[in-house]
C-alpha cells in the first residue's frame, strides 16, 4: 500500500498519469456540464416563487460547493506537505488555490446577482455571506504567501500552515445557515430525507455539480503538471518531456 502510494507521488509517474486522466475527465466534465446547463436553462421548469431567476442555482451551487471542497483538499495537501514533505502535495496545494479562489469569487458574484432580484439586496452581512467572503480572503492569502516567498518548498510549507489554520472556516460556512439565523436559506442538496427540489429541477443540478468537480480535476491536474515541471527542472524525466513537447 505504502510503496504504491510513494510510486504515485513520484513526479514522473504522476505527470504521466495526469496526461492520461485529463482527456477522460475533460470529456466527462463537458458532457455533465453541457447537460447541466442545458437542463438548467431549458428542461427544468421555472420555480413557483422565483420564476426563471432560480436558474442561477445551476451555476451558484456548484461554484459554492466547489469553493469549500477545494479548500478542504488544499488543507489536506497542506498537512501532507508539512508533515511528510512530499513534493506532489506541495504542488497540489499551490495549484488548487487559484482555482478555488476563482470559484469562490464566482459563488459570491452569482449569489449577489441572485440576491438582488430575489432578496432585494446584492449583499448583506449575514453569517453565510460573510464567512464565504472570508474564504475568498483565505484563498488570496495562500496565493499571496506563495508568491511572497522565494524558495518554492518553503513557500509551500508556509501556505500549508495557512491553509490548515483557515480550514476552521469551512464548517463555519457550511453550518452558518443552521447555527445562526441568516438571510441566506438552508442547504437544498445536502439535506437528507425529504426532497427540497422536484426531480426535473434536481437532475440538471446534480449533473452540473458533478461536471464542475470533473472540470476542477482537469484544471488541477494541468496546474500540478506545470508545478512539477518547474520544481523538477533539470531532471531526466523533465528533459524527456521537453524533447517530446517540442517535436
Amino acid at each position: 500500500m505504502w510503496t504504491w502510494f510513494h510510486r504515485l507521488a513520484s513526479p514522473p509517474t504522476f505527470y504521466r498519469l495526469a496526461d492520461r486522466l485529463v482527456p477522460w475527465l475533460g470529456l466527462l466534465a463537458a458532457g455533465l456540464l453541457g447537460y447541466g446547463i442545458f437542463g438548467g436553462l431549458l428542461l427544468a421548469p421555472a420555480d413557483y416563487q422565483q420564476g426563471d431567476a432560480f436558474r442561477i442555482i445551476y451555476v451558484h451551487v456548484p461554484a459554492a460547493a466547489l469553493s469549500l471542497s477545494v479548500y478542504v483538499l488544499m488543507a489536506a495537501a497542506g498537512a501532507v506537505a508539512v508533515i511528510w514533505r512530499i513534493k506532489l502535495a506541495e504542488c497540489v496545494l499551490v495549484a488548487a488555490a487559484p482555482i478555488g479562489a476563482s470559484f469562490t469569487a464566482l459563488a459570491l458574484v452569482t449569489g449577489m446577482l441572485w440576491g438582488k432580484p430575489m432578496w432585494g439586496a446584492y449583499w448583506v452581512w449575514d453569517a453565510r455571506l460573510t464567512s464565504e467572503l472570508i474564504l475568498l480572503f483565505l484563498y488570496a492569502g495562500v496565493i499571496g504567501l506563495n508568491q511572497a516567498i522565494e524558495e518554492p518548498r518553503a513557500a509551500a510549507r508556509a501556505c500549508g500552515l495557512l491553509a490548515l489554520i483557515g480550514v476552521i472556516n469551512v464548517p463555519i460556512v457550511h453550518y452558518s445557515v443552521e447555527w445562526w439565523n441568516s438571510l441566506h436559506q438552508g442547504s437544498t442538496i445536502l439535506k437528507l430525507g425529504r426532497p427540497n427540489m422536484s426531480a426535473d429541477m434536481a437532475r440538471p443540478l446534480y449533473a452540473a455539480l458533478l461536471g464542475t468537480y470533473c472540470f476542477f480535476g482537469v484544471a488541477l491536474l494541468r496546474r500540478v503538471q506545470n508545478e512539477l515541471l518547474l520544481r523538477e527542472r533539470g531532471t531526466a524525466w523533465v528533459k524527456e518531456q521537453l524533447r517530446s513537447a517540442h517535436v
Binding site: M118, W119, G120, G186, N196, S198
Partner: peptide, 18 residues
C-alpha cells in the same frame, strides 16, 4: 425602512406547489 425577502431552500414547479 428596509424590507428584504428571505426565501426557503425548496424549489418546485407551480403545479407541484399548487
Amino acid at each position: 425602512d428596509e424590507v428584504l425577502a428571505k426565501h426557503d431552500e425548496n424549489y418546485m414547479p407551480p403545479q407541484v406547489a399548487q
